[in-house]
Amino acid sequence: MTEFSLSTPLDEAAIRQLNIGDVVYLNGTIFTGRDEVHIHALKLLNEGKDIPVELKDAALFHCGPIMQKEHEKWHLVAAGPTTSSRMNSLEPEFISKFGVRAIIGKGGMSKPTLDVMGDFGCVYLAITGGAALLAAKGIKNVLGVHWLDLGMPEALWVLESQNFGPLIVAMDSHGKSLYEKVRSDTERNMEDVRKILKLD
């Protein structure tokens, strides 16, 4: 378990050095994006249109925050991760077309995403689900928002992070996934589990 402090934009070398189980703290710009941001951004891209932010070498946070507006300025209240697997079908294309280097979320993602992470050089960083105030402590500033018409949770928020973490490298760019490891452990434990339940 090695600890890293990384700053965005993230280059490939910074990502390739990470292995599952490592701990990362992030600094710099982070973008939020969940279902609607994925759908909307890919639609624009495929129509040959621009999106309002630069996602190359960026960190994308699967998060629908609670924001409050005070004196015309957005202020972050709570910002935990949302369940990443909802974006499974969109993420491989999203990573490879926009060049995202880190996905922050909870629960992990599917094999096609892991494969693209290996090809391109991208990692999945797990943040403690539900620990939204702890996460908010690592966000210094709300830099802006796009597509607010998608609703507060679904909008694309631009956040400035400082010491954002601890994040666990749960899927790395070398084809390894902590979730896969847990899944095979679970299979191994199944025999004991079935004994407890008197199942044959």
């Binding site: 629908g64 209240v77 910002a79």
Partner: peptide, 18 residues
């Protein structure tokens, strides 16, 4: 999780954004 629970109580603020 435990640290977050304390932050929520002290706020008082929602412990989870959802």
């Amino acid at each position: 999780i435990l640290d977050n629970i304390e932050l929520a109580k002290a706020g008082p603020l929602p412990m989870c954004q959802d």
